[in-house]
């Protein structure tokens, strides 16, 4: 099986400081990869480099495109990268307001990606929007409400619907449950897990919440100071951490 995403020697420096250094891994179709580490460990830098939001200094991000096979998305032209960004890729921001248009209705938010790739039939766009609002448990009669009238959890679910409506194959998530209370988190995780399984999505989830990766991720990468210090199957890393930092991370989780 060919990987969906191949990251090779990816580095990003902010002047003298290391964002992330020499990260390599493969991601296969249907696989969910978790990236954990403390604040400032380079998780978000890595994610943004992979998703094309930041230009990396060195390295390749190869993506298995539908038409041309493996392509390096770092050297690909901007229009091609943008096209990927609204078809095969999705990006779920930590703060829903970064990923939503707050002054556009929920339906418009979900429909934007469809219209960006050429959908020009209002009725079809609206039907798909209603369908997706249903899948993320937002009532159909909220379709014309603006996101600012939604609760934090609803905004996050709306952001997910907006991203998944074009049937992407790879989802980047940056702390998708950050800032939500635990019961809302639990429902969101349930929903994400269902969607990932149902659509056969590959996903890269950046989080500092080990419970989130335990639930969602197949594989885990632990980062510290811009370097990957440990990788492995999620259960393996969490139950038997080898690196001193991983051990610290796992042992720091509050037991209720």
């Amino acid at each position: 099986m060919t990987p969906l995403l191949q990251v090779e020697g990816l580095s990003k420096f902010y002047g003298q400081r290391v964002g992330c250094a020499d990260v390599s891994f493969d991601l296969y179709p249907g696989e969910v990869m978790g990236i954990v580490g403390e604040s400032g460990s380079g998780k978000s830098t890595l994610l943004n480099c992979m998703a094309g939001h930041l230009p990396p200094d060195t390295g390749q991000v190869l993506f298995n495109t539908r038409t041309d096979g493996m392509r390096d998305t770092v050297t690909m032209s901007e229009p091609e990268r943008r096209m990927l960004g609204r078809t095969d890729w999705a990006f779920v921001h930590q703060h829903a307001r970064d990923g939503l248009r707050m002054n556009v209705s929920a339906g418009g938010n979900v429909g934007e990606r469809l219209m960006a790739v050429g959908a020009r039939h209002y009725g079809d766009i609206r039907d798909q929007a209603i369908d997706w609002l249903g899948r993320v448990e937002i009532a159909a009669d909220r379709i014309d409400d603006r996101p600012r009238q939604f609760s934090g959890g609803m905004q996050q679910r709306l952001q997910i619907a907006r991203n998944l409506v074009t049937g992407p194959r790879l989802v980047f998530m940056d702390e998708p449950t950050g800032g939500l209370d635990v019961s809302v988190q639990a429902r969101l995780l349930d929903l994400l897990r269902g969607l990932v399984r149902e659509m056969g999505l590959s996903a890269i989830i950046v989080t500092h919440d080990l419970a989130v990766v335990r639930l969602l991720a197949d594989r885990l990468m632990v980062m510290k100071d811009g370097h990957v210090v440990e990788t492995g199957l999620t259960d393996q890393v969490l139950d038997d951490p080898q690196h001193a930092y991983s051990q610290l991370l796992v042992s720091s989780v509050l037991q209720v």
């Binding site: 901007e78 229009p79 943008r82 609204r86 248009r101 556009v104 209705s105 339906g107 418009g108 429909g111 934007e112 990606r113 219209m115 960006a116 790739v117 020009r120 209002y122 766009i125 609206r126 379709i143 014309d144």
Partner: peptide
């Protein structure tokens, strides 16, 4: 520059929905 005009139709969509 990139002919990224999906947003223009979002405005028209909003018109129709409202």
């Amino acid at each position: 520059a990139l002919e990224d005009y999906g947003l223009m139709h979002v405005k028209l969509y909003e018109d129709i929905s409202a």
